[in-house]
Simulated assay, not measured.
Amino acid sequence: MDLTQGWDSVATLVDGRWIERRPRRPEVAELLMMETTVMPWLAPQLPMRVPVPWVVDADPLVVRHEAVPGGPVGELTAAHGRRIGAFLRALHRADVAEAVERGLPDRAAEEREALVERLRDVVVPMVADRAPAHALLDRVGELPADTVVHGDLGPEHLLAEGGELTGVIDFSDAHVGDRALDLSWILYGTPRPFADAVADEYGVSEQERDRALVWHRLGPWHEVLYGLDTDDPSSVESGLEGVAARLTLGQEARTAIRRSPEPAARVTSR
């Protein structure tokens, strides 16, 4: 049974117990292989269940892991936030040198430079207000890369059962990067009780809040690139709408995270 077709891979439930994943593009195979060497080492260090995959077939590549129990998380609560705060604190304490030795990508600085250059060339000309767009890309180029990060933390990657979080899935974008990347959706795209609980449990600093806002503002730019790369005009259009909307976010977004209610996040896929 197919569970989801994400940007990078297709996931299938096998015998009600196993998740099999196949890359949608050749370059994704390397990321799935990375999970098979990094996750057996990383998983015991984390306070929640995560996938621990192995290779089933090499050509074409198929990896398999035991299904993490649970389904879509639904409404995010303060209790969920405390668990995620503890989870991220443990993840971000993982030894970087050993993670790299086991295959975790450590090319964030070079890849970020190439990404910024491409965004300037391809996306900025499509944006009406170009000065803040260039300023945002300048900030992205200055961000650190010194921590083991999940790299794609969002509601679709959190699982819950009986109202409690059971695990975090999909580590194919894990790399050595900026810890604030993992905080961006949490601080600026989730209900306030959840966001505040994560921040309190994790111990988020003001500098991390600032960097998380940069990453949050950058998010829709990736949707534009995805639409261009896959000839999907609707993704380009919705991505550009998000780029324009988030470019206006500034200090008010930071101060609002502790004073304004926000509708609960909704999850539509695993």
Rank of each mutant, 00 (worst) to 15 (best):
R82H: 13
P60R: 08
G74R: 09
P60S: 14
V63W: 00
A90I: 01
L91C: 02
R89A: 14
L88G: 10
R112D: 00
P69M: 09
A108E: 05
V100A: 11
L42E: 04
P40Y: 10
E35S: 10
H80D: 14
V100F: 04
A94I: 03
G85L: 08
V116E: 10
E27D: 12
H92W: 01
A67Q: 09
D59S: 11
R102C: 11
A108N: 06
R82T: 15
R118Y: 11
P60A: 11
P53G: 06
L104E: 05
V56I: 07
T36L: 11
P72K: 10
V63Y: 02
E110K: 00
D59G: 05
A79S: 14
L32N: 01
A108D: 10
L91P: 01
G103I: 04
L42A: 07
V55Q: 04
R24S: 06
V55R: 12
P72A: 07
A29C: 04
R24V: 07
G70C: 03
W54A: 12
V116M: 12
G81V: 05
P51N: 04
V62S: 04
L46S: 01
A67V: 00
P69D: 03
M33V: 15
A99V: 06
P51F: 04
V73A: 15
D106F: 00
V62R: 14
M48E: 07
D59V: 10
E117A: 15
R102M: 13
A78F: 06
W41G: 12
R118A: 06
E101D: 14
D106V: 01
V50L: 01
P44I: 12
T37M: 13
D57E: 14
P105N: 07
T77D: 03
R102I: 07
D95M: 12
P69K: 06
V73Q: 01
R93L: 03
L115C: 00
M48K: 06
L42Q: 09
T37L: 12
E101S: 15
V96C: 08
E30Y: 03
H80T: 07
G103T: 04
R89Y: 00
P26S: 09
L61Y: 11
A109E: 13
A99K: 03
D106N: 14
P72V: 09
A114Q: 09
D106R: 08
R83P: 02
R49Q: 14
P40F: 01
G74S: 02
R25M: 06
Q45L: 15
V68G: 05
L88V: 14
A90L: 01
L104R: 10
P53N: 05
V62M: 02
E30C: 10
D59M: 06
A43E: 03
R118G: 06
G103D: 11
G103P: 08
R89F: 02
A97T: 08
A79I: 05
D106L: 07
A90P: 02
V100L: 01
A99G: 12
L32W: 06
R83S: 15
L42S: 04
H92P: 02
T36R: 07
R112Y: 00
V63L: 02
D95V: 09
P44D: 08
E75W: 05
A97M: 05
L61C: 10
A94Y: 03
E75K: 09
V52T: 12
G103A: 13
V55K: 03
Q45Y: 02
L88S: 08
D57N: 11
V96Q: 00
